[in-house]
Design a protein around this nucleic acid. Sequence first.
DNA 1: GCTATATTATGACTATAGTCATTATTGAGC
DNA 2: GCTCAATAATGACTATAGTCATAATATAGC
Lengths: 207, 207
Amino acid sequence: MGRREQARQDKERRIREAALTLFLEKGYEQTTTKEIAEAADVATGTLFLYVQDKPELLALIFQERISAAVDKAFARLPGHRPLIDQLLHVFGALFDVYRPMPDLAREFVKAQFFVRGGKMFDESTRFRDSFQARMIPLFEAEQAAGRLGTDYPAPFVARMAFSLYFNALSAWLHGAADFKTARTSLLRSFLEIQMRGLAPVRKGNPS
Amino acid sequence: MGRREQARQDKERRIREAALTLFLEKGYEQTTTKEIAEAADVATGTLFLYVQDKPELLALIFQERISAAVDKAFARLPGHRPLIDQLLHVFGALFDVYRPMPDLAREFVKAQFFVRGGKMFDESTRFRDSFQARMIPLFEAEQAAGRLGTDYPAPFVARMAFSLYFNALSAWLHGAADFKTARTSLLRSFLEIQMRGLAPVRKGNPS
DNA sequence: GCTATATTATGACTATAGTCATTATTGAGC
DNA sequence: GCTCAATAATGACTATAGTCATAATATAGC
């Protein structure tokens, strides 16, 4: 690795750390990009060589944590437990990433959810695709085992589950539910209803 | 009504119309608040006496359409049809408000979904409360008729249904589904699964 | 109708995200 | 180790959302 690449990585780290520190200290809106640049010891313009805009600083902070959390969650998946517990295990890992910084998390989720185009969109899409690719087999296995109906394809079921997770998360981020309620009872209820609604039709039960 | 109030209403209308025209013509981001102020024939500062910030111009545009659509939808509710058709009727009316202006709708939904405090938050909250208040009786009636289980309270069921609507709407606004697919099949599938998951436990069927 | 007070309108101004022409640094080829 | 092309850094600058002290206007009391 040449000096170029080394310097680049070092600058990115400094920017990421400066952004996180200042965001936590003063809040996202109250922190200016100039302050971050100064704290990271780079010029204003340099900051925008590393991120396209301010929201992308949030991506810089969250993306690696989320990736790591998801990898770990799937590595430690309780495969012997019922599907719903596996789902709660994975989605719960995402909740735990956001838990220590709810205000930043809200800004991040907002930015992520509505991005259109740009680097952030690509990363977001890539993450979602890879996440779905790991979720789908869980549902397929459940279908194969006859514990889940086959009226709806596994990818559809996975997307709906993610939607329910997103709604539970949003309830917390909005203050409509506290963390524990959203992460456990709300999310669990949503998924229980979904799983029950997708249960296979009983043998000998018409239609 | 004195000259004050008359002038106020007239200015608000001019601002609303100017904002809509320009947003549709050039897009939300590409339209500056100064352009809107000029088109509405008021000073820059005046604009911000009528709205707190740029996103609130979207609220000005959508809120009355949404209110009217919801009132009409409930007035013409097909009460004799199955619950799911009633739900599709109401949520479909919301879809139809957004249909003619998907780009603006996306901006509006983004702004609404994540507001914290301010006039827009209050209006948004008030709308949601009144909307929920009209939805809840539909579910209560269904429970009373024994067609819906009582494990989960009606307000919870209503909130989950709204979440599912929101996800179907988002799928369209993101381009993950076209309008018709989102409004009919996606939304219907979501609600069907939910209703099936909430079906009452059959008599003589343990637990 | 006149004055005093409250309300509303104004636009120059401020704050800040993001740009871009200029300058500095790196590394490859010799 | 020198030259030069490619890449990266810089910070003055631009664009625009939103503010606020000042000016204009409406209403109430007399």
